[in-house]
Design a protein around this nucleic acid. Structure first.
Lengths: 220, 220
DNA sequence: AAACCTCCTTGATTCATATCAAATGATGAC
DNA sequence: GTCATCATTTGATATGAATCAAGGAGGTTT
């Protein structure tokens, strides 16, 4: 939540995040077609969101961690158009969207905050489109790892070590490649001494090398 | 603009769309790095938005036509993160975002409208991610043509004929494929009698065949 | 009309990734 | 502890799209 509110304001704002919900690993927070009522702020845990075609193909559209908001897809049609699945036991704040809108009208700072969250998601998706449309397998994985570790670091975790919460297949689905290709790219980075991998544990030994793979030009 | 306002309201709302701007074909409405001040409602004309990497790769992130809103990418950081290029002479309403926010607080219907526009963009990008991550060249082109003609039809144009405003290269950039592949897919559809193509003129002869290519399951 | 340019089409070849297949490693149930 | 299951790695091969290359269509300039 944004800063710049007095005590009285905070009381009102707290109301919107009053309800909690626990989601077990593997369970849905919401699913495609569900009625949209609320946005969810992740307190703890890790989610993936994904869309699927009628013939069963699945596309992971994002991975979300503590502090991030999910559910924005539901606003436009009053129904969710993707699934949000907990990749580990999670705890979310349920924020009824009607309340969010009411308070947004009262508090310009909150209004601005909500707009920024939606715009951030649009910009993120733009860069995923760049990944999927223009980059090769290793570039995608490098970008993915750098993004993950940067977000974790912003939350007080290490900037070089991480434990993946998702499978190779889920990474592949997000990055538009098959799980075998993901695995091979991990192995290649490992062989080159850029990272150390042991199943879902990843240690980034040479962040600059990863950055160079992701964006050769910016690192001359 | 949404319905449900009286005359007095409309006067205020008109204010926000008072300023017009003309953009010549090939010119930028806004560019990456530009200060964000306004959203733009397209009155006439056709735009592409695209992001680019430092090494010069470009990804078209969308094509926008009359009635659609561009500029949402700028909200999060106060600066635009993509280029908006007019693909034909265009005419837009400049809507200063500060005004949009002010009026949104006053008019819940407008507020809801703005939220829906942003959510719609998020959902659209989700389905582009599905296209890029999971579909093959011909499926992508079929989906693209169906989407374009559907949007044009909603604006009173034919549901079977259209004139493309963008080059094969731009289509390819949007769909994550090379211009030659786009051209071959057009030729294949043409050979199969599904469409008639002559340069940028496209006539959809068998919309159902296109739908079947895009989504085989839904058409059994 | 000729020359030029951009965009598009088509063919031949190459390459990155998908697919198929098998083995290995981790995890949980009994 | 053993078995069963699932995730991951690795190798061999197939394939869709990229790349390289040449030619053609349409529009514009001279």
């Amino acid at each position: 939540m944004p800063i710049g509110f007095d005590k009285e304001d905070m009381k009102k704002l707290d109301e919107v995040v009053a309800t909690r919900r626990r989601i077990k690993q593997g369970d849905l927070l919401f699913g495609n077609g569900d009625k949209f009522t609320s946005l969810y702020a992740i307190r703890t845990g890790f989610f993936k969101t994904c869309v699927s075609t009628e013939d069963g193909r699945e596309q992971v559209t994002g991975f979300q961690m503590a502090g991030e908001i999910i559910g924005l897809d539901g606003i436009v049609s009053d129904h969710h158009s993707c699934n949000a699945v907990a990749l580990e036991d999670a705890d979310v704040c349920v924020m009824p969207f009607a309340k969010v809108e009411d308070l947004s009208r009262e508090f310009p700072l909150l209004q601005r905050h909500v707009h920024k969250i939606m715009s951030r998601e649009i910009v993120r998706e733009n860069s995923v489109m760049m990944l999927l449309g223009n980059m090769r397998a290793e570039e995608r994985l490098a970008a993915f790892l750098l993004n993950l570790v940067q977000r974790l670091h912003a939350r007080g975790f290490s900037q070089s070590e991480l434990t993946l919460r998702m499978s190779r297949e889920e990474i592949g689905s997000y990055l538009g490649m098959k799980l075998e290709t993901v695995s091979r790219a991990f192995s290649k980075f490992s062989d080159e001494g850029i990272i150390e991998v042991k199943q879902r544990y990843v240690h980034i030994l040479k962040p600059d090398a990863l950055k160079k793979i992701f964006n050769p030009q910016a690192c001359i």
